[in-house]
Amino acid sequence: MEKDFIVRTKNVDFFYGAFRALSDVTVDFEKNKVTALIGPSGCGKSTLLRLLNRMNDLIDGTRVEGEILLEGRNIYAPDVDPVEIRQRIGMVFQKPNPFPKSIYNNITYAPKLSGIVDSEEIEALVEESLRQAVLWDEVKDILTKSAMTLSGGQQQRLCIARALAMKPDVILMDEPSSALDPISTAKIEELIDTLKKHYTIIIVTHNMQQAARISEYTGFFYLGKLIEFNATEKIFTNPDVKQTEDYITGRFG
């Protein structure tokens, strides 16, 4: 069967001012799979993630070269509105960052602004998103409470639910469990496993066990370069590149 790649990057270079943070990154992300990006800190994995939904646009003095294609369309083409890209490619951040609003309004905020006005549709969307994020049972009676009163793990699942409410095609996760305790982390990992039926997930993690547990594909980055991209099983058992093996086995200097 032909593989269906939803996001592809072609020879991407990225610069912060004069500093080259990524060089010549070409990678294809398969639809409805989980792809993990690993590597030591500062290797460019988070930078690539933030390029995929144009979040790096927010930083002054940056420059992108090469192409990033979402279903064949270059998202950096001049006529593309980054807002539209971000509606299709959602993002979950390292630190849970709910808005200082009620749980309910955290979910409805973006869908309402994108033009959904029907209140029944909104209600349904809230329940559906929270159920998908396995948070519904915990919060269904306190929807009007401030999201700030939730625990860290609950806040992170709320942030996932909030992203799901926009019905994106792709969800980017930037070390989503690094600020959480082990139980919350396990819940997030379970969640990722169920979400991949409907969504393409690209996750940056510093935790190699996590990458091995949850992903189908893994990309290893070092010094701004994609060193190896392969099936996760292959990367963690028999990587093609020596550097990858050194990193995975902890022999990395």
């Binding site: 509606q87 959602g90 973006a110």
Partner: peptide, 18 residues
């Protein structure tokens, strides 16, 4: 206002003005 609020909103595909 924390930068994370802005990022969270923009990452949901909400326009800058909103």
């Amino acid at each position: 206002v924390p930068q994370t609020f802005r990022e969270a909103s923009l990452a949901l595909g909400v326009s800058k003005w909103n």
